[in-house]
Amino acid sequence: MEHRDDIGAKLGMWVFIFTEILLFGGLFLVYAIMRLSYSNEFHQAAHHLNAFIGTINTIVLLVSSATVAMSITAVQKGNNKLAVLLLFITLICAAVFMVNKYFEWGHKIHIGLYPGSDLMVSLSHGQVMFFSLYYFMTGLHMFHLVVGGIILTIVMIKVQTGTINASRYVLLENGGLYWHLVDLIWIFLFPLLYLIT
């Protein structure tokens, strides 16, 4: 007899999410301390970020979270086809987010604004801290987005093949939880980085 414990699996996922929250928590702590020391310079530096792209990405991520949540409903109702479609939309959203980030980072790196660059070192201390935090936080977030995308791709394939179905879908739920975590972190990153002008 195979041991199966969906609640246990979900509990495990939640505990893992706690570690992720505290992983980013360490960064937010650094942000808080730096913001405290360099409040004005953070305001100035934030002008260099493109709030429009930030907003687009926020909307994209929120939509992707909703589609993941809906895909669970679809699987519960036995509609695997719709679930695959919804998951596919989620992955498209992730791709859009990445493309936006590519242009956002690309532009900054193009004008020579990246950690360790000559331009960066010539900036005031507070601005250096802001851009370092910007790169580190969004970079780590992006890494999680990629991992989440890989997880959801696997999940999508399993929904397609029927391994995940109306009577057995904890894997989808856990993949969804991870994806919402990525969204959660962005919900805080967005105002703290883009909207402090």
């Binding site: 570690t19 505290l22 360490g26 730096m34 950690p115 250096v128 790169y135 580190f136 780590l140």
Partner: peptide, 22 residues
């Protein structure tokens, strides 16, 4: 607690490689 040192150690690596300067 471990994630906090995890991120801190990553910061040390980023300090050395990228000069993020935290």
């Amino acid at each position: 607690a471990t994630p906090i040192v995890g991120i801190t150690l990553l910061m040390i690596i980023a300090e050395r490689w990228l000069r993020i300067g935290f």
